[in-house]
Write a protein that binds this DNA or RNA. Structure first.
Lengths: 308, 308
DNA sequence: ATGCATTGTGTAAGTTACTTACAAACATTG
DNA sequence: CAATGTTTGTAAGTAACTTACACAATGCAT
C-alpha cells in the first residue's frame, strides 16, 4: 500500500494578494469597449456558468465574437481566456469560501448590508495576523511569559481592556501568576512593582495611548520585560521589548465595529498556545486541575471551553 | 459613464462543500494505476505550475502519455482535464486563503505546530457563524436592542465576561444605556430591576451555566426581553427569547485556546452593526460625539478604532 | 508452465477551444 | 469632408484535450 506523496504548492509568490478578477472586471468596467462590456455583463450574470463555458458559449451569450472574448480577457489583465477562467474559478472559490452567502441558504435580498462586511473584515484581520506577525516574535514572547515570575496585563479603552482580560484568562490557566487591570493609575502602580523576571503584557489597537506607553516604560525602567500587542511602527511598538504587531485597516463605516479585535485576539491565542507548549507538563497539570474542579460545578458534555 | 452591473454567482449548489480535489488526489492515490500515480506525483510536486500547464506538459513531467493524464483526471472524479484544472485552481485558491503558510514567508520547518491550528480554528469559527446564525435572528436582536430603554449585559467565566464587556463597549457608543457585569449576584440583582422594554444580553459558550440561565429567567419573569449568544439547543438558548447560536467544535488540544471566542465576537459584531444601522442617525451622532471628544486626547492618524 | 482474459498504456487521429490575421465598419480629429 | 484611429467580426491557424485502436503487461485458471 503506497502512501500519497506530500504536497508542494509551488514557490511562494512575492507579490501581494492575488488579484480578484471579479473585482477587476467591475473596477475596469467603465473603461471597457462596448462589446467587451457585453462580455462582462454575460460573465457577471452567471459566474459559475462562465467558468465552465467555452469561449464560444460566452461569446454567444454576450452576442459578440469569440476574439472579443479574448480581447476582453486581455483588457482586464489576463493573458487570455484560459488564464481568465482559472482566475475566475479561483476568485469564485475564494468568494464562496469567504462570502458563502449561498451556503447559508438565505435569499440574497434578505441579507443586511453589514453581514458580509463584518464577517469578511474579521477574516481579513486574521489573515493579516498570518501575514504580519512573525512566529519568532511569538516564540520569544512565549518564552518570556513562560519564564515570568509574574505577569501583569493592561489595556484601556473598552476592547483593549477586554483583550487584557482575555490575556489574563488564557495565561492564568497554565498556572502562571497573571493579574489584569484596565485602569491607568493602577496600571502605572502595578508596573512600578515589577522586577527583573516579571513581564508586562499590554494591548493597544492604536499603539499611541499615553497611559499604556507609560506603563511599559515604567516596567522597562525597573528591569521587567515588556510585550505589546499593537500596531506596527507605533510608539508603543517602539518601547516594548517584544512587539507583536499587525496593521489592520479600518472599515470606513463608523457603525461597523472594528475588526482589529479579531486580529489581536488571534495574536493572543497564538501567544497563549505557544506559552502553553513552552510550559508543557506544568501547564497541562494546571489545566487538568481546573477541569477537575469545574466538573464538580456543572455536567460536562464532550469538549468544552474551560470555565465558559 | 456606465455603472458596473451587479454580480450573480449562479444558482446555489445544494450539495455540501465543494470537494477538495487535492484531498481527493491524496485520498485515492493508493487506488490509482501506476502511471496515474506518476501524474499525481507530478501534480502534487508543484500544484501551482500544474494549474497552468498543458495536458502535454503534465504528461511530459510525469513521463506518461497525454491520454493518461485525462484518465487520471477521470479516476479522481473529474470530467476531464479542463474540469480538473478548474477544480485544482479552486482548491489551490481556497487552500491559500485558509492555510496561506507560504505567504508568511516563513520556512515551513520553523512554524510552531499550533500556528495553523489556532488561526485555522479562528477562521472556521467565523465560518460557522455564517452557516449557523440566522440573519433574521440578528435583525430581531438588533430591533430589540435599538428599542431598549436599557440594556444589561452579563457573562461569567473569563472569556464570556470579556465578551460581555465587548458587548457593552460596542453598544454604548451608539448612545444606548448599557451596563455590564460579570458577577453572578450582581447580575441577578440587575435582572430583577429590568422592566418591559429593557433587554438582557448574555453570553455563554456552553449555554449551561446556571447563573446565566437564572439571570435570563429573572429578566423574562419581569417582562424584559432577553437575548443570548450561546450554543444551540442549550438550556440558555431555550430560555432566551432571542437566541443567537453557533456550535463551535473544540480543538482537542487543551493548550490551544478555544476558538469559540471568535465566533461569539463575530456574532456580537454583526448584532452591534445591525443595531447601529437600526438606530441610524442617532447612533452616528453619538459616535461623532465620541470621536470629537477623543480627538482632544490624542492625535488621530486616519481611520482608527474609537477609543482603542 | 502455459494459455487466455483482463487491465493498463501509448500512438495516432479526431474534436474542441482559443488565438491570430486581416478586412470592414465605425468613431474621432483636423 | 477626408484621413486616421479604433472597434469588431470572419476566417484561418494553433493549441489543447479526447477518443479509438493496438500492443504490452499482469493476473488467473488449467
Amino acid at each position: 500500500m503506497s502512501v500519497a506523496p506530500g504536497i508542494d504548492e509551488g514557490p511562494a509568490p512575492h507579490a501581494p494578494a492575488r488579484p480578484d478578477i471579479i473585482g477587476e472586471i467591475k473596477d475596469r468596467y467603465s473603461g471597457l469597449r462596448p462589446a467587451e462590456q457585453a462580455v462582462a455583463d454575460a460573465v457577471l450574470a452567471d459566474v459559475r456558468e462562465a467558468v465552465r463555458a467555452s469561449n464560444g458559449d460566452i461569446a454567444a451569450r454576450a452576442g459578440v465574437s469569440q476574439p472579443t472574448v479574448t480581447r476582453f480577457c486581455r483588457s482586464i489583465g489576463c493573458e487570455g481566456v484560459r488564464d481568465f477562467k482559472l482566475q475566475l474559478a479561483q476568485s469564485l472559490a475564494v468568494g464562496e469560501a469567504f462570502l458563502a452567502q449561498d451556503e447559508t441558504e438565505v435569499a440574497p435580498g434578505e441579507l443586511p448590508p453589514f453581514w458580509t462586511s463584518v464577517l469578511g473584515e474579521a477574516r481579513a484581520a486574521i489573515r493579516e495576523v498570518e501575514r504580519q506577525v512573525s512566529p519568532d516574535d511569538v516564540l520569544d514572547a512565549a518564552r518570556a511569559l513562560a519564564a515570568a515570575a509574574r505577569i501583569a496585563t493592561f489595556g484601556v479603552g473598552g476592547s483593549s481592556a477586554a483583550l487584557a482580560l482575555e490575556a489574563q484568562v488564557r495565561l492564568f490557566r497554565y498556572g502562571l501568576a497573571v493579574d489584569v487591570c484596565s485602569e491607568p493609575y493602577v496600571a502605572r502602580m502595578t508596573a512600578a512593582t515589577l522586577k527583573p523576571g516579571d513581564q508586562m503584557l499590554v494591548i493597544s489597537a492604536t499603539g499611541r495611548t499615553p497611559e499604556v506607553i507609560e506603563a511599559v516604560e515604567i516596567a522597562n525602567r525597573y528591569g521587567a520585560g515588556s510585550i505589546a500587542i499593537t500596531r506596527p511602527g507605533s510608539p508603543l511598538a517602539d518601547v516594548a521589548q517584544i512587539a507583536l504587531t499587525a496593521e489592520i485597516g479600518e472599515y470606513p463605516d463608523a457603525l461597523t465595529p472594528t475588526a482589529s479585535r479579531f486580529a489581536f485576539l488571534a495574536i493572543l491565542d497564538v501567544v497563549a498556545a505557544a506559552t502553553g507548549y513552552r510550559l508543557g507538563p506544568t501547564a497541562r497539570e494546571s489545566l487538568r486541575r481546573i477541569k477537575f474542579n469545574m466538573l464538580d460545578t456543572r455536567p460536562a458534555d464532550g469538549l468544552e471551553p474551560l470555565g465558559d
